[in-house]
């Protein structure tokens, strides 16, 4: 018996979500009185996972897995789960993890619950809380299979240090040829993505036009944040679709979400519910967003944002 956790990496180093899923896997392993095995595909140093509680690290290096391919990755994880007799498999909720999780579930004939927000409420029966109705509610769901697959929502558990041996072991899964091949990847490498960001600066139709996004980009640069927008802004082509957040766009689970000139429609709020602190800047004191926010300034974005940028710059310079 063990808890298997897939630790995702990019360009040979672990992503922050990898440390979060290991912290979480450790908590489950403690409850079940078992150990944590991580599986790392072309990843970073095993010892980095020990810090968060990995007892063992299965290291995979396979030419067929150099680029992400959902089937191959799912097969590697499924075979590791079988070898380790894993009763729980923990994945993150990055685009790639969400892509392959259902394949792992079918391979292992396991119950899969996504968007999980907490450690299991009980382990016999295995009951776990996850968000449903695009964050408008939670469900406590029971998983009835021997193996359980958990997709842990970003920032749902946080990082918890532990110290474990993280014994590295080579693992060579059998990978089949896939008929799906990557032709090209188009990704801005210098920008923080909404998925990875701790801080997201988002703006809406209140900004009047795409030419006014300079101050939003600037705030994002000062805060090391990702930029985002409301749906009409991407529908009108002011910003790319990848920035659209909300019920029909991307979910945002950041520590800080700053909404500028966004009214706070129910579909927008649904997508950002799981962010911790929400700040609203809006000229209309009646904007519904104020009811969902932690902090707010009522005022004209074109006055406030430049001031805020100046002060944030000074603050960052002082606290660097």
């Amino acid at each position: 018996m063990s808890v298997l956790v897939y630790t995702e990496s990019e360009n040979g180093s672990f992503k922050k979500t990898a440390f979060e899923v290991v912290s979480y896997a450790k908590a489950i392993a403690d409850t079940l009185d078992t150990s944590v095995t991580a599986i790392s595909i072309n990843g970073g140093e095993a010892s980095e996972l020990g810090v968060y509680g990995a007892d063992k690290v299965l290291e995979v290096s396979n030419d067929m897995l150099t680029k992400f391919n959902a089937e191959g990755y799912a097969d590697a994880i499924s075979q590791a789960a079988a070898q380790e007799e894993a009763t729980v498999v923990v994945l993150s909720q990055t685009a790639n993890a969400k892509f392959m999780a259902p394949l792992v579930a079918v391979n292992l004939e396991a119950g899969y619950v996504s968007n999980v927000v907490a450690v299991p409420q009980s382990t016999t029966p295995f009951k776990i809380k996850h968000s449903v109705f695009t964050n408008k509610a939670f469900s406590l769901t029971e998983i009835n299979t021997n193996t359980k697959i958990i997709g842990l929502g970003k920032n749902a558990y946080g990082l918890h240090e532990n110290s474990a041996a993280a014994v590295a072991e080579a693992f060579s899964p059998t990978i089949k040829e896939t008929q799906t091949t990557v032709v090209s990847v188009d990704k801005a490498t210098d920008k923080v993505t909404i998925a990875d960001a701790e801080v997201v600066v988002s703006a809406g139709r209140g900004l009047k036009g795409p030419e006014n996004w300079g101050m939003i980009e600037e705030m994002a640069a000062i805060l090391g944040a990702a930029t985002a927008c409301s749906k009409p802004v991407s529908d009108m082509g002011w910003r790319s679709h990848g920035e659209h957040v909300g019920q029909t766009g991307k979910p945002v689970a950041a520590s800080l979400y700053i909404a500028i000139g966004i009214s706070g429609a129910i579909q927008h709020l649904a997508g950002i519910n799981s962010s911790k602190i929400k700040v609203v800047i809006n000229s209309d004191p009646e904007a519904p967003f104020f009811k969902a926010a932690d902090y707010g300034i009522v005022g004209d974005a074109f006055e406030i944002v430049p001031q805020l940028n100046e002060k944030l710059k000074a603050f960052k310079a002082q606290n660097a």
Binding site: A110, V132, A137, L140, N144
Partner: peptide, 25 residues
């Protein structure tokens, strides 16, 4: 393989803190 047992709504949140200046924020 899974059964939803009970649903829950997010806890109501506290009122927003409105501030007048960016320094306070």
């Amino acid at each position: 393989k899974t059964v939803a047992t009970i649903f829950e709504k997010p806890a109501p949140r506290g009122a927003v803190k409105l501030v007048d200046t960016v320094d306070e924020l």
